[in-house]
Design a protein around this nucleic acid. Structure first.
Lengths: 165, 165
DNA sequence: CTAAGTTTATTCACTGGTGAACTATCATTC
DNA sequence: GAATGATAGTTCACCAGTGAATAAACTTAG
């Protein structure tokens, strides 16, 4: 039903790269679908996607700590939003916020033991669905898919990385 | 840099389907990246993604018309937001809003000649980048990628489609 | 025909995210 | 060692999207 739309636009505007446009649209749709699915799983835990991602990054760190700036970089969030995320997670006692000794501008964010327990409890129920997403994917499919996604990511880095004023 | 994070979480929580989780995260990242890229292209035209999509659907229709409800369905937007989108596009005279004769609850939305011209002018500058996204993709790659994306979409429809109370 | 239920769209209050301005600290240089 | 400039975070005002409540029109059953 989306394909027909793109085809028809391709007829009206013949210079359009139809196949690529279709892929692009597919990626956008799938990204949005997965995001909705994820958020619906997070909602019972009263987390949104960025809060979850932030918490997971901290969880994945051996020392369980980071700074707002670094978290912004890894989550591709603005600093403004990271402030709000940190506020929310601090309020729930999943992380702590303290100031660094060496550089008093920096804020040190650290996951708490309660935060770790929270993650360990929250993750497993999501596994079945993550598995189901890739039902019917052979080992070769997985390899191919990984390769193609990373190739696409590389191309996007190239063309999007033209950011020097 | 993301892979290490997932690997480490996989060590801490051994039941996790690491490969699938990685793909999932990749899809989310790519979806977000493409969306950002698209929106940065749309910004000079003072459109956002949903407004663009709405306009393109109307453009793709032979008669250039639809209703808010139908547009909600195709754009996966809430009715609330569609009202706002229509307001914005009407204000710019890219679409018109009129009420249906047969069913006076329905609102008829129709793209204007100015709207069509606008689309025809706006699209071509985006083509080079859409092409560049898939630079280095062979014909086989494109076929594989399409196949895998649609398989994934099918699986998501299955598990997400459990919506009957 | 009318009462109850359904569908279609809008309004309102709220959440999530962003850019611009601001504050505080650190680094550099004259 | 003050002045200038760069960095890290926060605050504020705004944009985009959502759920719940509402209004208007249609449908159906008695």
């Amino acid at each position: 039903m989306m394909d027909e739309g793109i085809d028809r636009v391709g007829q009206l505007v013949p210079a359009m790269p139809v196949a690529q446009a279709r892929m692009c649209r597919l990626m956008l749709m799938l990204g949005a679908t997965i995001e909705r699915e994820l958020e619906s799983r997070l909602k019972p835990n009263k987390l949104n996607h960025s809060e979850f991602l932030t918490l997971m990054i901290l969880y994945s760190r051996p020392d369980g700590s980071s700074t707002p700036g670094e978290l912004c970089e890894f989550t591709t969030q603005g600093a403004t939003n990271m402030t709000r995320i940190a506020n929310a997670l601090v309020k729930r006692a999943l992380i702590t916020r303290g100031s660094s000794k060496e550089d008093r501008r920096r804020v040190l964010i650290r996951i708490t033991p309660a935060g770790r327990r929270f993650v360990q409890k929250m993750l497993p129920p999501m596994f079945p669905q993550v598995g189901a997403m890739f039902a019917g994917f052979s080992a070769g499919d997985m390899r191919q898919f990984d390769r193609l996604l990373r190739k696409l990511a590389g191309n996007l880095d190239q063309s999007g990385g033209q950011r020097l004023p």
